[in-house]
C-alpha cells in the first residue's frame, strides 16, 4: 500500500506543473517562488482550515503518508487509501467497502474530493469535522477495527513518522497529530477544473446541462452549487423499505427516516456504484431511477417524480454527468 510518486493527488500534480511553469516563465531575479500548498479552483471559496490545524507542507505530507498507511488498521492490511482510491476520485468500486479480514461494511465509499467544504460528514451528517471523521474508520469493526491509542503506539515505533510528526506539529504521533495530519491532507484534495467547470462541453453535454439545471428534472434543487450538492438530507425514492435508516439513526426523528446527505456529483463518472448502499451500478441506472420517479416512501421528496425523459435526453444528461 505504499504510495508511488505517480499517485500524487491530481491537484498536487496540477499545482506542481503550474509551479514549474512559474519558475520557467519568471525572468525576474529574486527568491525562487515557493509552490503554494494547494490550489483553490477558480470560483471556489478559500477552504477553511481550523486554527489548531493550519496547513504546512510538513503537515500535508505527513497526512498523506498516514492516509496511505496500513498501520492504522488492526491487521496492518487496510489503509484509508484502500477504500478511497485516487483513480476513482478517492472513492472505490465496491458496492460496500471491505475492511479488515474481508469484513463488508454497509455503505458505499464516497469521493473525498472537496471534503474541505462539507459542513458535516457521513451520510447521516453526525460528524462535524474532518479531524473527528478520521476517528470513525479507525474504530469501526468493519473498517480498521482498531484503537487510536494502539495506532499511536504503532506509529511511535516508526522513527520516520515520529520525526515527521515532530516537524509538522512539534509533538509525537498522538491522536491529535494523527487526526490533524490526515484532515490537513484531505483539505488539499480540491478539484474544480472539470470540463463542466471550464465550460468545455460537447453539444450533447450542453443539452444535458440545460436539462440538469431545468425545472423539468429539478436536479439542481438538490445537486446545486459548485460542489453539486446543497448538503441537505433528502430521500430520493431509492427504495420503499430501507435497511439503513439514514439520518434517523442520529436524530431519532421519524421525519429523518431514510434521508441521506445529498452527495456531491463531482467525478461521478468514476465513482460507481452509486447511492449510500451502492445499489445502482451505473449512471444509466441512476438516471433510469430518477426518470421513473423512484419508489414510494413516506419521506420521498416531492421533487422526485416521473420525469418523462426521452432516450436522447437521458443520453445527454449522462454525458453531462460524466463531464462534472
Amino acid at each position: 500500500m505504499m504510495v508511488s510518486d505517480r499517485s500524487r493527488s491530481a491537484c498536487l500534480a496540477v499545482l506542481i506543473i503550474s509551479a514549474c511553469c512559474l519558475v520557467q516563465c519568471t525572468t525576474t531575479t529574486g527568491p525562487a517562488p515557493v509552490a503554494p500548498l494547494y490550489v483553490v479552483p477558480n470560483g471556489f471559496p478559500e477552504p477553511v482550515f481550523p486554527a489548531d490545524n493550519l496547513p504546512s507542507a510538513e503537515r500535508i505530507a505527513l497526512g498523506k503518508a498516514l492516509f496511505m498507511s496500513t498501520a492504522l488498521s488492526r491487521t496492518n492490511t487496510i489503509a484509508c487509501a484502500s477504500c478511497h482510491l485516487e483513480q476513482y476520485a478517492f472513492a472505490d468500486t465496491a458496492t460496500v467497502s471491505v475492511g479488515v479480514e474481508g469484513r463488508r461494511g454497509t455503505r458505499n465509499a464516497p469521493s473525498l474530493f472537496n471534503v474541505a467544504y462539507h459542513p458535516y460528514y457521513m451520510r447521516e451528517g453526525g460528524v462535524p469535522t474532518l479531524e473527528m471523521q478520521v476517528q470513525v474508520p479507525i474504530a469501526e469493526h468493519n473498517e480498521f477495527d482498531f484503537n487510536i491509542l494502539q495506532v499511536q503506539a504503532r506509529l511511535t515505533a516508526d522513527t520516520s513518522i515520529v520525526n515527521a510528526a515532530m516537524r509538522a506539529y512539534g509533538r509525537p504521533p498522538d491522536p491529535f497529530v494523527i487526526t490533524r495530519a490526515i484532515a490537513c491532507f484531505e483539505r488539499t484534495l480540491l478539484s474544480g477544473s472539470s470540463r463542466a467547470d471550464r465550460q468545455d462541453l460537447t453539444s450533447a453535454e450542453q443539452r444535458g446541462r440545460v436539462l440538469f439545471e431545468s425545472t423539468r428534472t429539478n436536479c439542481t434543487s438538490c445537486h446545486g452549487g459548485f460542489n453539486y450538492t446543497t448538503y441537505a438530507f433528502e430521500n430520493n425514492g431509492l427504495a420503499s423499505v430501507y435497511a439503513d435508516s439514514g439520518r434517523y439513526r442520529l436524530t431519532r426523528s421519524t421525519a429523518d427516516i431514510a434521508r441521506f446527505k445529498v452527495p456531491s456529483l463531482r467525478h461521478v463518472g468514476v465513482t460507481a456504484p452509486y447511492m449510500h448502499d451502492g445499489s445502482l451500478r451505473t449512471l444509466r441506472d441512476v438516471l433510469d431511477h430518477y426518470n421513473s420517479g423512484g419508489h414510494l416512501h413516506p419521506q420521498k421528496s416531492p421533487l422526485i417524480r416521473p420525469l418523462g425523459l426521452t432516450r436522447q435526453e437521458l443520453d445527454d444528461l449522462e454525458a453531462y454527468l460524466r463531464a462534472l
Partner: peptide, 19 residues
C-alpha cells in the same frame, strides 16, 4: 491532553459516527 477522561480511551468510550 493524554489521560484526560475525555481523551481517546482503549477500549474506546467514543462512538465516531455519532461524534
Amino acid at each position: 491532553a493524554p489521560y484526560h477522561p475525555l481523551s481517546p480511551q482503549d477500549p474506546s468510550m467514543h462512538w465516531g459516527w455519532t461524534s
